[in-house]
């Protein structure tokens, strides 16, 4: 105990600095080891979502931004072009945002060149389990597929749905309207962007 009392402030701060220095150098080396893997992960996650939404595309473009949005929204709402083997544009994969019951939610969807919806997927969200969360499953959002044409407009209210689909939607109307809103927003932005 005695020798601890006799430590001078200089030695105390020196020892603390050494501990900090060792910790920092440890962190730097671990960071160097993991950073590549982390970046790769976020890339594959994006790839996987794109592949799910646009199954028959061979490759995708780099991330494209909507020039009409402000800086903050540009990070949230963006799109990819989907190409076939001959680098012809087959359609687009758009990531848009709508507001559900639990706040903002990310909606990914794919359209062909005529703006017909091919597939949609509810991504990051904080909806209530059993209610809004059920739209995460593919069978509960199937009624959006093939819509946004002259014959079948984008469903955005209960009236435009078939009786079975109405049953799915009635218990979670706010989330449904949020998804429909996100689709409409994404489609309109895309129309303006590629005009």
């Amino acid at each position: 105990m005695n020798n601890k009392e006799s430590l001078t402030p200089l030695i105390i701060s020196l020892r603390l600095t050494i501990i900090c220095f060792i910790a920092v150098s440890l962190l730097i080396s671990v960071n160097a080891l993991t950073i590549g893997k982390i970046q790769e992960n976020s890339k594959t996650e994006e790839d996987r979502a794109n592949k799910f939404l646009f199954a028959n595309a061979v490759s995708f473009s780099e991330k494209q931004i909507f020039s009409s949005l402000n800086e903050k929204d540009k990070k949230i709402i963006y799109y990819f072009k989907a190409f076939d083997a001959g680098k012809n544009t087959l359609g687009y994969v758009v990531y848009s945002q709508g507001s559900g019951f639990g706040g903002a939610m990310k909606v990914g969807f794919s359209v062909d060149t005529d703006m017909k919806i091919i597939k949609i997927k509810l991504m990051d969200n904080s909806e209530t389990p059993g209610y809004g969360k059920k739209y995460e499953m593919e069978e509960n959002v199937k009624f959006f597929y093939g819509s946004n044409t002259k014959e079948k407009p984008l469903p955005n209210n209960l009236v435009s749905l078939s009786p079975e689909d109405k049953d799915t939607v009635t218990s979670a109307t706010i989330s449904f309207k949020g998804i429909a809103g996100a689709l409409e927003k994404g489609v309109n932005l895309l129309k303006n962007e590629i005009k």
């Binding site: 430590l7 701060s13 603390l16 910790a23 440890l26 671990v30 982390i38």
Partner: peptide, 24 residues
Amino acid sequence: IPEQVRIPAYIVVIASFVTIVEML
């Protein structure tokens, strides 16, 4: 670890391990 600054030293040690776990 000097007695007088033990809490900051512990915090540095713990925080570095937490960062390592987070990165992994």
